[in-house]
Amino acid sequence: MTIAPPVVRTAPLSARSAAGSGSVSWMAWPALIAFTLFGLIPLVGVLVLSFSSWSGQTTDIPFSGLDSWRSVLADPQLPHALGVTFLIMALSWVVQTPLSILIGVFLAAQHRYRGVLAVLYFIPLLLSQAAISITYKALLDPNFGLGAGLGFEFLQQDWLGDSTLAVGVVVFVVSWQFIPFHSLIYQGGVRQIPASMYEAAQIDGAGRVRQFFSITLPQLKYTIITSSTLMVVGSLTFFDLIWVLTAGGPGDATRALAVDMYTRGFKANLMGPASVIAVILVLCGLVLALALRRLGGRDQADSQLEGA
């Protein structure tokens, strides 16, 4: 394992360390090749395929210019899918952010139940979205699920059969899985706030609530931006969860962009239009990530994302 193959030329002893760079470059190649083949080429490929009318069934790819773009942009399904995507994005941000901050602050403090809390708390992060969605599907069954068993009228609704409720369920399940993750990020953020700031505030007579709004929240600004970026950009790609939970239904109430892409491409065999949706997905992600970065100021957002 530790035996060095003689392939590598040692840098001349007299050279400055930078001069030895030629001898390490080769180490970047395997990763570069792997990522190029299945990351970069597909990224270019999706743009190319958006100008085709490939069915996905054959390896014969007919090109059809802007046809796919025209048909997708004229299709009322596109604004609908965009609407669903942004609705789920906005709702899940609104639900997750305040709760994650509250819980993150709570977890950052030392207290007796922390250990127990933490063990149970993060279990949702470990489960696959398929497993989570299957569980909720059974749990929310109006006839045999939790509501029926407990006899609560309120819980006995047809959660996944009603358009509005189904969107709510998706947002809830997303929150169920990801609030622990974001709490973890906020917990880390809170721990970085110098204790002296709170001591100073205390001497000035600021109460808990005041301290939270005047110290904790402003100090968490960049953590909030990091967490929001992950939430917002991540929500563009919700697929597993929605697909297993509702398959985009009822009707097309939860047919977000990623689901729409899959349905067009792999169910309707229209890879051209599906690729158009994929390009739109990439563009949305880039625009959102850049917008959030600007919000936080370039340098800070950088260092936050890069710090490990």
Partner: peptide
């Protein structure tokens, strides 16, 4: 880091 897997799944399928 910014490329979502879902968005490039069609070309990956082709490859």
């Amino acid at each position: 880091l910014a490329i979502p897997l879902q968005a490039v799944i069609i070309p990956i399928y082709l490859i």
